[in-house]
């Protein structure tokens, strides 16, 4: 059993942070890797990236957005409760190297995935520009952490309640134009955001990493559920990724495949909400 030792609600309760006791995983995990969690015997296996780890205390940090039944179920877990399974670390660690100047772009919960990578890049001695965005000010997460992990931090909100009004791509364009010597871009967030960031960096000829989030089952390369097309080749995101070259990724296919179970997911979530109706703040 994997106990939750600290819990925090972010972005008005739409995003939850858990510190979970998993000493073995905490010791091994590297930036970019993820875990698969199951809340209980009937639960789905849900992949979440480790936003941080504390190897001394044996803790890992996951930060997730409540989007459906399983994440809503996770949200009901309190400090002292446990996940039944936490499996990992899975996936390839980010290849961190010194390239000089880099730009890290994060949107929504993608910022949680981006944060350890940004910190890693900075520790390698890179000069880090970061651009993070959310729909509005209340939904922005990890601003302080990202500030500490970057040399320059830019913020955008879709509604202009904080920082630049508009999309992260606007600011990305500005950064890329002003600093032609940027050698690497890391863009993590919703699929459309990653797609448009990649299109933009391609114009500037800047190598780009994205972190793909296809639906997964086992996370060990056994089922093929997480297959994505990268450079015209079938890749399994759970073992070959989750990070891939943004210029080679087929985002359309990923978008379609993420919709595989929309009716089932809705039915499952509705049922869950009915069962957990009173006093639950997670309804959209």
């Amino acid at each position: 059993m994997f106990e939750i030792v600290a819990r925090q609600e972010m972005a008005q309760g739409t995003i939850i942070s858990n510190w979970v006791k998993a000493p073995k995983i905490a010791k091994k995990a590297k930036p970019g890797q993820f875990v698969i969690l199951r809340a209980n015997e009937k639960g789905e296996r849900i992949p979440l990236t480790m936003a941080d780890t504390d190897p001394e205390k044996g803790l890992i940090n996951i930060i997730y957005m409540v989007v459906g039944k399983s994440t809503a179920l996770f949200k009901t877990l309190k400090v002292g409760d446990s996940y039944l399974d936490v499996i990992g670390p899975l996936g390839q660690p980010t290849h961190l190297e010194k390239v000089g100047k880099v730009v890290c772009v994060g949107g929504g919960t993608g910022i949680a995935v981006l944060y350890p990578i940004t910190r890693g890049l900075k520790q390698m001695g890179n000069y880090v520009y970061s651009v993070i965005g959310a729909r509005s000010k209340d939904l922005l997460i990890l601003e302080d952490e990202m500030k500490a992990a970057s040399d320059e931090l830019f913020i955008c909100t879709d509604d202009g309640t904080y920082g630049h009004k508009g999309f992260v791509t606007d600011v990305l364009k500005k950064v890329l134009t002003e600093h032609q010597d940027i050698g690497l871009a890391v863009c993590i967030g919703p699929v459309p955001m990653m797609k448009f960031c990649s299109l933009m960096t391609k114009e500037f000829g800047v190598k780009t990493l994205v972190s793909l989030n296809p639906i997964m089952v086992d996370g060990t390369g056994m089922c093929g559920c997480c297959r994505v097309q990268v450079g015209g080749k079938m890749q399994f995101a759970c073992v070959d990724g989750p990070e891939f070259d943004g210029h080679e990724t087929d985002f359309e296919e990923l978008t379609l495949r993420l919709r595989s179970y929309l009716p089932e997911e809705k039915a499952s979530y509705d049922l869950f909400q009915k069962e957990h109706a009173p006093g639950c703040s997670c309804q959209k």
Binding site: K42, E44, L73, V217, M222, Q229, R257, E264, S268, L271
Partner: peptide, 30 residues
């Protein structure tokens, strides 16, 4: 092969056996 509804046997059987998708939504995996 990317179309929704195309499965490897491993995935199809893992979902139905290990994850008990045949008992969805009592079990969470569809």
């Amino acid at each position: 092969e990317h179309y929704i509804g195309v499965y490897s046997a491993n995935e199809y059987l893992t979902r139905s056996n290990l994850m008990k998708a045949y008992d969805f939504p009592n079990y969470d995996t569809p």
